[in-house]
Write a protein that binds this DNA or RNA. Structure first.
Length: 268
DNA sequence: AAGCGTTGCAACCGCGTGCAG
DNA sequence: CCTGCACGCGGTTGCAACGCT
């Protein structure tokens, strides 16, 4: 492993950020904004590359970050969005105010994947594991996911909007000792999910080449979601996914034996 | 108490994309 | 059109904390 290409010339620090570095970066961006990231470290007096500064800001220092454990509602939403979007973490993060793509990705890899498997759901296809094992997905281009678009309900998003009102950017350095460790009791999380018995039957959402899903994705990605990690602006919810617009895809698919329903029932 | 395996988070890496020159 | 730069994204790694024996 080498340094970033942008770091070859100087001897730049790597690894964990010290509180002093955090302070410098936070102070600089608070005062001047980040502007061009490559010039931030110099201006802020940091021995880091711009890329590293950007990442630190986005994933840790941004004042609009929520931090803390993911609520059941958020987890449900991530699962649903993943079913639709696959590993497009930044787009998933755009629907979860105050959460970063990195955070969501970590949650998925460390926690949600496991949960789904325990519930007999393949985390890649979101189909029942038995089905995936049996057929090894005989129908990879299945368009069953075509209407997953409507799987994420507005009510869920609205709940999240409300959820976003919790204090942001609590003392960052307390993080390790305080809150977000998923080793903590997820059981005590609220179970107020608005999870709905829908979602069809999983479907190989990741592979379907030309389907309504693509149409959905096109639409999805066309929306300017300022919640994306690229923004240093505090994110409101204005740019989040207007899911109601996706109902074009909804139809008889709302079968009840869907993976998410299984997930929900076991979760309760 | 110590050792060791596991878990989860923070950060890094490399690639793709967009854009200005 | 080509090139170089900056940014954004997803995958992966490193390491500290935790849990078990």
């Amino acid at each position: 492993m080498g340094r970033h290409s942008c770091c070859y010339k100087q001897k730049l620090r790597k690894g964990l950020w010290s509180p002093e570095e955090d302070e410098k970066l936070l102070g600089h961006i608070t005062r001047y904004g980040h502007g061009c990231w490559s010039s931030v470290p110099k201006q802020a007096g940091l021995q880091r590359c711009g890329k590293s500064c950007r990442l630190r800001w986005i994933n840790y220092l941004r004042p609009d970050l929520k931090r803390g454990t993911f609520s059941q509602l958020e987890e449900n939403l991530i699962i649903e969005l993943h079913e639709v979007l696959g590993n497009r973490w930044s787009q998933i993060a755009a629907q979860l105010p105050g959460r970063t793509d990195n955070e969501i990705k970590n949650l998925w890899n460390s926690c949600l994947k496991k949960k789904l498997r325990q519930r007999g759901i393949d985390p890649v296809t979101h189909k029942p594991l038995s089905e995936v094992e049996d057929g090894e997905d005989k129908n990879p281009a299945a368009s069953r996911n075509q209407d997953k678009a409507s799987a994420v309900s507005n009510s869920e998003l609205n709940l999240l909007k409300a959820d976003h009102s919790e204090p942001l950017g609590a003392n960052l350095r307390e993080k390790k000792s305080s809150s977000i460790s998923p080793r903590g009791n997820q059981l005590e999380r609220e179970s107020t999910s608005s999870f709905h018995a829908m979602n069809g039957n999983g479907g190989n959402n990741l592979m379907a080449p030309t389907s309504n899903r693509d149409l959905f994705l096109d639409r999805f990605t066309a929306f300017p979601h300022e919640g994306s990690t690229s923004s240093c602006q505090p994110s409101g919810f204005g740019g989040h996914f207007p899911l109601q617009q996706l109902n074009y895809a909804s139809n008889a698919r709302l079968a009840t034996n869907s993976a998410p329903s299984i997930w929900l029932s076991q979760n309760q």
